[in-house]
């Protein structure tokens, strides 16, 4: 999962650091930007369109956060906007949150000082279960031996299922039967206390 993380708090902000650590721990590829520090070096290796999720965290919405929010909504990307509990919402964001189309992807979470990671975790859990996670949109290059290839050819012929579909079906069968994997999924996004 590729996550773009934008924070407009100070560089010493504990929550911001913890979010970054958490995202990396759950295996996300994170590209981060703060209002004082430009995008990290990973950005050059990943096209913007490949970003799956955008996380925006701050005390309030600044111009750059507004830009990223607008970009994410226009590109139909999932976006979580983390703002402190009790702060007044920007009128434009408030308006956007009433838009039926935009709110399918745009999520607002109000955090308190001690629950910001929980908000991120809740969001990522729901993200992992949406239709996008089931889309076969990741291209894979797989090197096989002649013997395995011959088997796949034979299997495809005898089952009348193309090789890629057969492989996918079998991997999904393995996933469903794998208890350790199920256990991992159940706790993947849990915040370690």
């Amino acid at each position: 999962m590729h996550i773009y993380f934008y924070s407009n708090t100070s560089e010493t902000d504990q929550n911001s650091q913890q979010i970054l650590q958490y995202l990396r721990r759950v295996g996300a590829t994170v590209i981060s930007e703060t209002s004082t520090k430009k995008i990290d070096s990973l950005a050059g290796t990943l096209p913007m369109d490949k970003v799956d999720v955008m996380l925006i965290y701050g005390q309030k919405l600044d111009a750059q956060a507004g830009y990223w929010l607008a970009w994410a909504v226009s590109k139909n990307k999932d976006v979580l906007c983390l703002l402190p509990e009790g702060t007044k919402l920007d009128a434009a964001l408030e308006h956007l949150l009433t838009d039926q189309v935009a709110t399918k992807k745009l999520h607002l979470a109000r955090y308190q000082s001690n629950d910001v990671l929980e908000k991120v975790s809740n969001f990522l859990e729901t993200f992992g279960q949406d239709d996008l996670a089931e889309l076969y949109n990741i291209k894979y290059t797989l090197r096989l031996s002649r013997k395995i290839n011959e088997y796949l050819d034979w299997k495809s012929e005898s089952t009348q299922i193309d090789k890629a579909t057969w492989l996918r079906q079998n991997i999904q069968g393995l996933m469903e039967a794998d208890k350790d994997w199920q256990k991992y999924l159940a706790t993947k996004f849990k915040v370690k206390k």
């Binding site: 111009a63 607008a70 964001l93 308006h95 956007l96």
Partner: peptide, 8 residues
């Protein structure tokens, strides 16, 4: 169609 522009 572009409510996001209002953010900017």
């Amino acid at each position: 169609q572009m409510p996001e522009l209002g953010l900017l």
